[in-house]
Amino acid sequence: MQVNSEHIDKWLALQSDLGRAANTVAAYSYALRDYQKFCSALNTCVNTASREHVAQYVRNLLDRCVVKMDSDGSRQGVFANATVRQRITVVRLFYDYLVEEGLRTTNPVGRGSRLGGRYRRDVRAVVPIQHKMPWIPNEEEWQKLLSEACAMSLRNRLMLALAYDAGLRREELCLLHTEDIDPSFRLLHIRAETTKGNRDRIVPYSACTGQLLRDYLVFRRQLTNARGALFISESSRNFGIPITIWTWSKVIRALGNAACLPKFSTHTLRHLCLTDLARSGWELHEIATFAGHRNTSTTLIYIHLSGRELAAKLASASSIHGSRMEAIKGAFQ
Results as ranks from 00 to 15, higher is better:
6 E>Q: 13
9 D>M: 11
9 D>T: 15
10 K>N: 08
11 W>F: 15
13 A>W: 00
17 D>Y: 02
19 G>T: 10
23 N>E: 12
25 V>P: 02
29 S>N: 07
31 A>I: 02
32 L>P: 02
35 Y>G: 04
38 F>M: 05
42 L>V: 01
42 L>A: 08
42 L>W: 00
44 T>I: 14
46 V>Q: 06
46 V>I: 11
54 V>S: 07
55 A>G: 06
58 V>M: 06
62 L>Q: 15
64 R>I: 00
64 R>W: 00
65 C>H: 13
65 C>E: 11
66 V>M: 03
68 K>W: 04
75 R>D: 14
77 G>P: 01
79 F>E: 10
81 N>R: 15
82 A>I: 12
84 V>Y: 07
86 Q>Y: 09
88 I>P: 09
89 T>E: 04
97 Y>P: 03
97 Y>N: 05
97 Y>G: 04
99 V>I: 07
101 E>D: 13
102 G>Y: 00
105 T>G: 12
106 T>M: 04
114 R>M: 08
114 R>A: 02
115 L>M: 14
120 R>F: 00
123 V>E: 15
124 R>Q: 13
128 P>W: 15
131 H>K: 15
134 P>D: 07
135 W>S: 01
137 P>E: 15
141 E>P: 01
143 Q>M: 03
147 S>F: 06
148 E>C: 15
150 C>I: 08
150 C>A: 14
151 A>D: 00
151 A>F: 02
155 R>F: 12
157 R>W: 08
159 M>E: 09
164 Y>I: 06
164 Y>E: 08
165 D>S: 05
165 D>I: 02
166 A>L: 04
172 E>P: 04
172 E>H: 06
173 L>E: 07
174 C>W: 14
174 C>L: 08
176 L>D: 08
179 E>V: 12
182 D>H: 12
186 R>A: 00
189 H>W: 03
192 A>C: 11
198 N>D: 14
199 R>H: 14
201 R>E: 10
204 P>G: 14
208 C>H: 05
209 T>E: 03
211 Q>R: 15
211 Q>I: 15
213 L>Y: 14
216 Y>A: 08
222 Q>M: 14
222 Q>Y: 11
223 L>K: 06
225 N>S: 11
225 N>F: 11
227 R>P: 00
228 G>T: 06
230 L>Y: 01
230 L>D: 04
232 I>H: 03
238 N>Y: 14
240 G>R: 02
242 P>E: 14
244 T>N: 05
245 I>Y: 03
246 W>K: 02
248 W>G: 06
249 S>Y: 11
252 I>C: 10
252 I>S: 05
255 L>Q: 09
258 A>C: 07
261 L>S: 10
261 L>M: 10
269 L>C: 10
270 R>M: 06
277 L>D: 13
278 A>L: 05
284 L>E: 03
284 L>D: 00
285 H>N: 09
285 H>F: 07
287 I>G: 10
289 T>Q: 04
292 G>Q: 09
292 G>F: 13
296 T>I: 11
305 L>V: 04
307 G>V: 13
310 L>M: 09
311 A>V: 10
313 K>M: 11
314 L>K: 13
316 S>F: 05
319 S>K: 06
322 G>W: 11
323 S>H: 12
329 K>M: 08
332 F>Y: 07
333 Q>I: 13
